[in-house]
Amino acid sequence: MGGLSVLPSVLLVGPQGSRPDLGAAIKEVGLKGPVALITAGWQERESDDQALIAELGVEAVNLKLHARAEQLFAADSELSKAHVERQTRLKQLHDVYRIRLDHAFESARAISVRQLDAQMLSEERQVSVEVLRYLDLDHLERSRSTHREFEQLYQPARRKEVMRHRDELRRLIEPTTAVVVAGGHVASLLYRLKLFDVLSLTGPRSWVAAAAGAMALTERIYLFHDFAPHGTGVAEVLDEGLGLVKDLVVLPDPRHRLKVDDREGISRFVRRVAPATCTAMDDGARVFVEDGRVTRAKALRLAPEGEGHVGWKT
């Protein structure tokens, strides 16, 4: 964490699709700007940031991490090739994980409707959850190992082009007071944040992050969509995030993505990610974080019983 003994303040915000409120969030925490803006989750549309900057209401400088990564790969073919190979490997790992996950989920569902006595059913349900937890952890470990191998072999931080971009980023970030991260494609955003090790450049600055941006700041990112076009989706772990927010799993836009009345499904997921707290963040949601821990929240906290509780304080 850039050698920081205390993690920076973080404000997590809900989705920005229908009612953008990043600007309101910035006002709420009294940030004056200028801010470093990250829209890498928008990928090729990264520079279409005029409306967002206007909405923020403070001066902002876009770090353009997506475009930088494109430039970097164009200039450093060895790194580019290695990056593609790593992504291919991650996709293959993910495919295999997904097959196991689907089958484990089907087993869990089949066992949950067996005519067993209550105690045994409860125990078996817990075993089903443990199987899912094991698959998640195993997948994370395999992904971690792939990243480690990439880092050791290619040492991106010591490569000329990466260093050049990091110098530029340092200069851009230097006058800013906070970092603002928009949503979008969470994997694209996460890998670019990591590629340039942005966290080591931002020091104690506060972070305000929405949707995919909020997910990227947590320790563990889960992908989910209960209304997948080919039937109910099973949530899956993507990778480790930046870890600025501890023990929290962020699920943005539950109104469109989560069957909140599926208590069995919610309960299974909450127990699967425990001891992390699971929060569903809809329009207007806020989660305030100090030194990695949630201090208060205006968001739906999902409980092990499958219910949602609005807002909480620790």
Binding site: G183, G184, V186, A211, A212, H225, H230, P252
Partner: peptide, 18 residues
């Protein structure tokens, strides 16, 4: 076609959170 194609070639909808 929607069900078939999106199952065979899942799109990035699972990755995108705006």
């Amino acid at each position: 076609l929607r069900e078939g194609l999106s199952w065979l070639f899942p799109g990035p909808f699972l990755m995108v959170y705006e």
